[in-house]
């Protein structure tokens, strides 16, 4: 008996060893919590193409949309922690907790790696006469209350707008906040002249800036965006707001560390591949790779800022 149990234990450990070595031995599902065709989806699919060759198995994109990403996030959070079901999320997830909409944030997951980033910016309709932070400030102080900014309340665009307005020194009370979701809806309203300021991804606004329908006010990143080289960053104009959309891959909380390491190495290798960066650049996306403890620090820092904004602008108090 003793012998057989010993053999069994040996067999189990051998099996465990081979299965750990063999990870991944089936295709990996990457859940995108937004609809096909949107910014999140495009970034995930381009990146999944880059992953080919870095990892032995296919990475399949699975769209599960609904409730601003919550449905897909919960699906991965509660999935079997084997490393075959991952989440492709941005900071919108953390904003759910900060505003009391949901009861979890990134700490409910095990982060794999942060890779793709999408620059965000503040834009204005061309006929508003605003073309930078200075003109925005002077116009708003002349006519407080007559300019509008469209944001999805308690969503990413809302936080980006608040971050920018705070850094630019414009009082939120002087600019009317209009609740509206969807980059395209906001852009159309700005072109129509119904809306003044639009926080949106740089890539989404770029064609309209090129055609002269919209003017960039500030790009919320450290460096200028390659797609809109002429648009000044907030920092250059004295409003040090940096609020890009960082796509981070997460795994369920109890995923074994070996699997996370394997995945993270592949993710970083793909992100650092120049061919991949070129592909992403065409979608006006950049790469900010981070993994391990470095990633933990970055995520904690981002969350602290989100919480700070939520507290400052009273987004939490009405939460519960």
């Amino acid at each position: 008996m003793k012998f057989s149990s010993y053999a069994l234990a040996a067999a189990v450990s051998a099996l465990a060893a081979t299965s750990a070595l063999a990870f991944p031995d089936k295709p990996i599902e990457l859940v995108v919590p937004f609809s096909p065709g949107g910014g999140s989806d495009v970034s995930a699919r381009v990146f999944a193409q880059c992953l080919e060759g870095q990892i032995d198995q296919k990475v399949l994109i699975k769209n599960i949309e609904g409730a601003r990403g919550k449905i897909g996030e919960v699906e991965v959070r509660d999935a079997r922690p084997d490393g075959y079901k991952l989440l492709w999320a941005h900071q919108g997830m953390d904003m759910g907790l900060a505003t009391g909409r949901s009861d979890y944030n990134y700490t409910a997951f095990k982060p794999v790696a942060s890779t793709v980033a999408m620059n965000y910016g503040i834009f204005a309709g061309a006929n508003s006469g605003i073309d930078g932070v200075e003109s925005l400030k002077s116009k708003v102080s002349e006519n407080p209350g007559s300019y509008t900014i469209g944001t999805a309340l308690n969503g990413f665009s809302h936080f980006a707008a608040l971050d920018f307005l705070e850094q630019a020194g414009v009082s939120v009370d002087d600019v009317r906040t209009i609740p509206m979701s969807g980059d395209k809806n906001r852009i159309v309203a700005a072109i129509q002249g119904n809306l003044t300021l639009v926080p949106t991804a740089v890539g989404a606004a770029a064609p309209y800036v090129d055609s002269g329908d919209m003017k960039p006010v500030a790009v919320l990143s450290a460096d200028r965006d390659p797609r809109l080289g002429d648009a000044q960053t907030g920092q250059e104009q004295g409003a040090d707001s940096q609020f890009a959309m960082y796509f981070t891959t997460y795994a369920p909380k109890d995923t074994p560390q070996e699997a996370i390491d394997t995945l993270a190495d592949a993710w970083i290798a793909a992100a650092e591949d120049p061919a991949c960066q070129e592909k992403l650049g065409k979608q006006s996306m950049t790469v900010v790779p981070a993994k391990g403890t470095e990633l933990d620090d970055v995520l904690a820092k981002r969350y602290a800022r989100i919480e700070e904004l939520a507290d400052k602008f009273n987004l939490t108090s009405e939460g519960n």
Binding site: L153, P179, N314
Partner: peptide, 10 residues
Amino acid sequence: LREISAASFT
């Protein structure tokens, strides 16, 4: 439901 404080018109 609670009211939206940020937008007073809706």
